[in-house]
Write a protein that binds this DNA or RNA. Structure first.
Ligand SMILES: [Mn+2]
Ligand SMILES: [Mn+2]
Ligand SMILES: [Zn+2]
Ligand SMILES: [Zn+2]
Lengths: 142, 142
DNA sequence: ATTCTTATTGATAATTTTTGCAATAAGGAA
DNA sequence: TTCCTTATTGCAAAAATTATCAATAAGAAT
């Protein structure tokens, strides 16, 4: 809760405006994360805001580092409040998700930056695979 | 060129059919890779095939390991023929893309699999960042 | 070659996401 | 408070993507 005033400040300082729409979306994401645009819309439609505004606002918040966007199966986007940098493991079979600390990646990222000359955003990657339970299942049916 | 007969065999062996539409799309991707569905459609529309077929076929080929799908900016998908496992660095500013050998990731992936119990597809990730040229530009304007 | 099964396609509609533009309202200045 | 500037929204249309379903055709069997 104490983060909204700070975010508002930071937005105004950059010449952007703090609107009820933006606040509603931020609160929705504060309540539960990893939401698709449609799920965000469900949670804020009562305010009368448009779907177009949801899409625009999510992209705006992402571009300004306030939310993270992560890829779900098939390239669909999912959003959550920005916080400690982390990555995701998602099970292709059941969708189970595990968060990974970003630290594990730091060494590799640094090495890639050195090799390529790129400055990388090593933030919020999603790796797909099979969770332990679904590995068992796929063996069982084989 | 010699790979189409082999792919055809493999598809038929799995009970799928080899259609002119699938062949046309494979040839388009063989000619140049990293194509969006729209770009694939441009290259095959002469055959009379539908956009819906392009989307369906790309997803079909991906699900069967014949093409790779990678994420471009904003979660848009791009396709290329499956080949040596590799990853991408993409510049947020100019879109420049560099391919990375998968080997660089192996160690990290193995370690993550051990920690999490997940079996990971460490294939065809996309990392975003700024290429060397665009880093200079962003300094210049600052 | 003919028949038969059914995977695949085209046509169409539905859904999702993006875009253009005029009306609105945030928030700094007077 | 009132006025101004312009960032932001709503609305409506466009574009992109997915789903439905009957017609088609791949390819195995005869
Ligand atoms: Mn997350
Ligand atoms: Mn590639
Ligand atoms: Zn699972
Ligand atoms: Zn660049």
């Amino acid at each position: 809760m104490s983060c909204l005033p700070r975010l508002s400040q930071s937005l105004r300082a950059r010449g952007y405006r703090v609107t009820p729409q933006r606040l509603a979306i931020l609160e929705a994401l504060h309540h539960d994360g990893h939401l698709s645009p449609a799920q965000v819309y469900e949670r804020v439609r009562q305010t009368g805001m448009t779907e177009a505004t949801v899409y625009r606002t999510l992209e705006f918040l992402r571009a300004n580092g306030i939310v993270f966007a992560a890829q779900r199966e098939g390239g669909r986007l999912t959003y959550e409040l920005a916080g400690a940098s982390h990555h995701h493991l998602v099970c292709r079979a059941c969708g189970a998700q595990v968060d990974l600390e970003a630290a594990a990646f730091q060494e590799l990222i640094a090495s890639l930056e050195q090799q390529s000359g790129y400055r990388l955003e090593a933030s919020h990657l999603t790796l797909f695979g099979l969770c332990p339970a679904c590995q068992k299942d796929s063996k069982a049916q084989a």
